[in-house]
Simulated assay, not measured.
Amino acid sequence: MSRSLPRRLGSMAAVAAATAGLLITTAVGAAADSKNGVLETNEFGLYYNSGQLGCVFDVYDHDENFTNDKFKGSCSGSGQSTNDNTASYWNRDSVFDYYVYTDANYRGSWGTIPGGYKGNASSTFKNKISSTNS
């Protein structure tokens, strides 16, 4: 299940109340930070290597198809496709679970990564993840 619109609007309202006038900047910034190769709070990260090592593919909310996604940075795995090429993960969202799928468009085998959890992908998912959703 995708994050609900009320949660996002509630989050934006809280930010706007705390930093008057920055609602639009905050909304644009959240979208721009996703997939930048830096795992930030409220994002889900898939790592090139086990133990949360190597490059990280960071996503906020969902990505239905990793085919055109690549690991970024000057780290192990840089420039490699994210699709079917991840060995570990970290859910930096403390509230929402993330779901990973072995096929694009949320198909195939799926698993749940609880909020705040990190670990190595099981044999079912290691180097087989192709989409994710929160």
Rank of each mutant, 00 (worst) to 15 (best):
N91S: 04
F57K: 02
V100C: 09
S74T: 12
Y89K: 08
A30W: 10
T86S: 15
R8S: 13
S50H: 07
A121P: 00
V100D: 00
T102W: 04
V95T: 13
D84H: 10
F96M: 06
G77C: 05
R7N: 03
A14P: 02
R8H: 15
V100E: 00
A31T: 11
S11E: 11
T26R: 09
S130C: 05
Y101P: 01
S109Q: 10
V100P: 04
N36L: 08
S94F: 07
I24V: 12
G37T: 06
G73K: 03
N42S: 13
C55T: 05
G79C: 08
L53I: 00
F44K: 04
P114I: 01
A17K: 10
A13R: 12
E40N: 12
T82L: 01
N68L: 09
D103H: 07
N120F: 00
N91R: 03
G111V: 03
D58G: 07
A87D: 04
S94T: 12
S4Y: 10
F71Y: 14
Y48I: 01
G115M: 06
I113Y: 00
Y48K: 00
E40H: 10
I113P: 00
E64R: 01
C75W: 04
G29W: 06
G10P: 02
K70P: 01
D63K: 02
A32G: 09
S88Y: 02
T86L: 05
L22A: 04
N133T: 06
Y117W: 12
G115A: 15
N83S: 11
Y101G: 02
G37N: 03
K72S: 04
Y60E: 01
Q52I: 08
R3F: 06
N83G: 05
G116K: 08
A30V: 15
N105K: 09
N36H: 07
A14D: 11
R107Q: 13
G10A: 14
S134C: 14
W90G: 08
T132M: 10
E43F: 01
L46I: 10
K128H: 09
A104Q: 06
W90I: 03
T19K: 10
V56G: 02
S134I: 08
S74N: 13
V38E: 01
E64S: 14
V56M: 02
Y89P: 09
N85F: 00
D33C: 13
S76R: 04
T124H: 01
S78A: 15
I24D: 15
Q52N: 15
N105Q: 08
D63C: 08
Q80P: 03
G51K: 01
L39Q: 00
K118Q: 15
R7T: 10
A32Q: 14
L9S: 11
